[in-house]
Amino acid sequence: MSAKEIIEAVVLVMVIIGTLMNSLSSLGFIRLPDVYNRSHAATKSITLGILFILLGTFIHFLFVDNYFSVRLLLGIVFVFLTAPVTGHLIVRSAYRFGVKLSDTSIKDELAEDLERAKKKEARTEGT
């Protein structure tokens, strides 16, 4: 087995892992109950899947074609920069908009604290 074949095998495995992760998180996107849980599937496993696919492509271009592709690395960086921001924003605005948590949820400490803050505000306004 030559070095090229080994590298091709590694690239193959990485791309397959990445694709599997992406398809599984899409499955999670369908199955999970509410916005908040779906954002888990949308922001995390998908970023990891993209990391694997782009790294595999990067290695392929580097060793098979002898081409150092900075753009692929930049793609990884930007996906990792933007995915959590969008996830956070969507979840936050959904909560502010009053989207209810699914029935299976067992805990909501944010609602308790928001309630308390509101009461405190009303009291200070009243006096």
Partner: peptide, 20 residues
């Protein structure tokens, strides 16, 4: 990631989401 994927592909969803 492995933990979350394990939770997602379980035939019956067995999660208790919440905010802490």
């Amino acid at each position: 990631s492995i933990v979350v994927i394990g939770q997602v592909i379980r035939p019956r969803l067995n999660i208790q989401p919440g905010i802490f």
